[in-house]
């Protein structure tokens, strides 16, 4: 949809040719192109600005003559900085606990319920755990039913309580059930909520407080635009989550939200959703994501 960064830089580097090294003045056009590429990819306005500043600092004084192709050197600087920003120390998932408890959170329609199924499937097959899913969305029409259908597809039981409209109690009961039935993993699906919905944000804080999850994950749609920073920040303030899940990356979005989120919360992106099916889950690769954002 948009041209990639190398193509853009091809143009602006014509100006740089034969000028020896990169200076404030001759790099200005290039930086504009970089910023533009980031904004087209939905990187947040402020994040793009700060990031471009950082790239400039890295680039200043670099020798353009010895570099085979200056635009390639510049693309590499940008790419590596992006990958660095999105990389994180611990990206593994915390499963110590009996049962280990994972709490799923995020906006409406981001892919929480689907991810809940995928994650159970993933951990069950790759780590040999015995999961129990808790249907904690008591609001959305047929949300419980949806999780039950997914549970059936992957052969994992789903805990529900007819008529219970209290998700905190439901989550606690689910954990009790897991203990009594010998499940060593509980994944709690929750209703979608907006960060500015006080009541609903209080509710998910209360769930977290009550069940003390070993891992809390924030699920976000990869197509999200500028608002990604607000949501990621707000959910983090309320939940102090352990990691981020980017969904719907099987589409053609550049996915700049990944950068925006990492620039406002110091939490690793752990998984990516690559489709609607239960096996369409990948672990996150910062370098691939950097390629994608730059359209490489």
């Amino acid at each position: 949809m948009f041209e990639n960064l190398s193509e853009r830089l091809e143009r602006s580097f014509k100006i740089l040719k034969g000028q020896g090294s990169i200076t404030e003045i001759n790099v200005a056009e290039t930086l504009k192109d970089i910023r533009r590429a980031l904004l087209d990819a939905d990187v947040n306005f402020k994040t793009a600005k700060n990031f471009t500043e950082q790239v400039k600092e890295k680039a200043l004084g670099q020798d353009v003559l010895t570099a085979v192709k200056p635009q390639q050197m510049m693309v590499k600087i940008v790419h590596d900085e992006l990958a660095e920003l999105m990389g994180g120390s611990s990206t593994d998932i915390e499963l110590n606990g009996n049962p280990a408890v994972i709490l799923i959170s995020g906006l409406q329609g981001s892919g929480k319920t689907t991810f809940t199924g995928k994650l159970a499937n993933f951990i069950k097959s790759k780590r040999g755990k015995s999961p129990l899913l808790v249907a904690g969305d008591v609001y959305r029409p047929a949300a419980i039913n949806q999780l039950q259908v997914l549970g059936e597809q992957i052969g994992v039981p789903v805990y529900t309580e007819e008529g219970n409209t209290n998700p905190v109690k439901l989550a606690q009961d689910g954990i009790k059930e897991a203990k009594s039935k010998g499940h060593d993993l509980v994944i709690i699906d929750t209703a979608g909520r907006l960060a500015i919905d006080e009541e609903m944000m209080n509710e998910i804080s209360a769930i977290k407080k009550a069940v003390k999850p070993h891992e809390t994950l924030f699920v976000v749609d990869a197509m999200t635009g500028q608002d990604a920073v607000n949501t990621a920040k707000e959910f983090n303030q309320r939940l102090d989550y352990d990691g981020v899940v980017l969904t719907k990356l099987d589409g053609d979005t550049r996915g700049g939200a990944a950068i925006s989120i990492r620039s406002v919360v110091d939490k690793p992106i752990k998984f990516v959703g690559m489709g609607e099916k239960m096996d369409a889950l990948d672990v996150f690769h910062p370098s691939r994501m950097a390629d994608r954002i730059l359209g490489m």
């Binding site: 990819a41 197509m223 589409g251 979005t253 550049r254």
Partner: peptide, 11 residues
């Protein structure tokens, strides 16, 4: 269209 979607809405 989801109001929180970015530039991908064009495509």
């Amino acid at each position: 269209l989801d109001g929180s979607t970015g530039q991908n809405a064009f495509e």
